[in-house]
Computed example of a mutant assay.
Amino acid sequence: MTIDAHYPDRSVAHRISVVVLTHNRAKEVMHTLSRLLALPEQPELFVADNASTDGTVELIKAGLRGVRVVRCPSNLGAAGRNLAVACVSTDYVAFCDDDMWWEAGSLARAVHVLDTSPGVAVLSARVLVGESLELDETCIRMRNSPLESRDLPGPPLTGYIAGACVFRTDVFRAVGGYEPRLFIGGEEELVALDLLASGRTIVYLDSVVVHHHPSRTRDSRLRRRMLARNAAWISWLRLPLHDACCATGRAFALLWREGTFARDALAMIGALPWALARRRVVPRSVLAMRRQVHAAEQRQKEVDRRAAS
């Protein structure tokens, strides 16, 4: 599918929107938006602003026409995307974060694939990192998915990358978007489990590309703790008891190493009544897919370990 880099592709005009999530990264989001505004597909652009206090909203409104800002009442984390999607009127919605942007032609390819593959609910893109364009490690695992393709446009997955994916808009709304309590960090796992449980399909597509230049303002230690906490909560929400106990143990171990056990472990356990009240274990077929993917990843790790020794 050839896309002219200078003119909009009329076949996808008004078919797809882009939602950009941001919080206090005015410089990064302005750069991302300038990239998105230059796309040949000319998608509708929405910024889900998580109550920024650095002038982000004012800067966008003053300098960038054609970008709609959805102001969240507070920092909602990943759930800020839900408010933006509520304003979307196109068939499809693509997501990226404020330090990521879609490559020219990729959104048109995504529209074509989703139009011709009605069984696919979500496309997870190939993510190229930094100036070196190194393939994101998560995408390597996705590309090598052991799940049977069944004539799908790409390898089927049990998850996706929240900041580099394209959804059918009605599917995103039907699944309920992102759970506010998870905030940020692996929030897409709960959505993916619910999608798979409803019989929908997630696919990795190598020809749909997102560029990622990781922001220097990231708090890596906080993100590790939130990833571990959310993995435990999601396990209690959707996975068997054994999985939930293992995820909780791993979270405790990480919090102990990080030196925040007394504070964070108590808060994590305090949310168990909330999680248990909403507990709905996914079907065995979904659990089997997860086991198959996990086993393939473990085998690959062993191969890599032996190659490095």
Rank of each mutant, 00 (worst) to 15 (best):
L227E: 08
T260M: 05
L276T: 06
R278S: 02
I269M: 11
D264V: 03
L266A: 14
F252T: 08
L272N: 01
A295F: 10
S235D: 11
P283Y: 07
A265K: 05
C245D: 08
D243T: 12
R280F: 00
A275M: 14
F252S: 07
Q292P: 01
A275E: 02
V286R: 03
A295G: 04
G270I: 06
A251S: 14
G270M: 04
W236E: 05
R279I: 00
G249F: 06
P273E: 03
G270C: 04
H294M: 12
P240E: 07
L272G: 01
A275H: 02
A244S: 12
H294C: 07
L266Q: 05
V281C: 05
R279L: 02
D243P: 01
S285I: 02
R284N: 11
W274L: 03
A296E: 11
A262K: 08
N230D: 08
I269W: 09
V282Q: 02
A275Y: 02
A232H: 08
A265E: 04
L237S: 02
H294F: 11
R284K: 11
E297R: 15
R278W: 04
A231V: 03
A253T: 13
A265F: 10
M289C: 11
I269N: 01
E258K: 10
R263Y: 08
A244C: 07
R278Q: 13
V293I: 07
L272A: 04
W274S: 01
G259M: 08
A262P: 00
R290L: 14
C245N: 09
L272W: 13
Q292G: 07
A228G: 05
A271I: 01
A253D: 13
R250K: 12
A288N: 14
V293R: 08
D243I: 00
L237D: 01
L254D: 09
V282W: 03
L254Y: 13
F261Q: 01
A295V: 12
E297A: 15
I234S: 03
R291D: 15
V286P: 00
G249K: 07
H242G: 08
R257C: 06
P283R: 05
M268P: 00
W274K: 02
A265Q: 04
W233S: 02
L241S: 11
L266Y: 06
V282M: 03
A277N: 09
R290S: 03
E258P: 05
F261L: 15
P273S: 07
R263K: 12
L255Y: 12
G259D: 09
A271D: 07
F261R: 00
L254F: 12
R290Q: 14
M268V: 01
L237Q: 05
L287M: 12
A228Q: 07
D243F: 09
H294I: 07
T260S: 14
A288M: 12
H242T: 10
M289L: 11
P283K: 03
W233P: 00
A251R: 07
A253G: 08
S285D: 10
S285A: 12
A288L: 13
F261Y: 13
R257W: 09
D264E: 13
A296Q: 10
L241E: 14
R284G: 15
L241P: 00
P283N: 03
D264L: 06
F252Q: 06
C245G: 06
W256H: 11
L227R: 13
P240Q: 07
H242A: 11
P283A: 04
L272T: 00
D264H: 12
L266F: 12
P273R: 03
E258N: 09
F252P: 00
R278Y: 04
R279F: 03
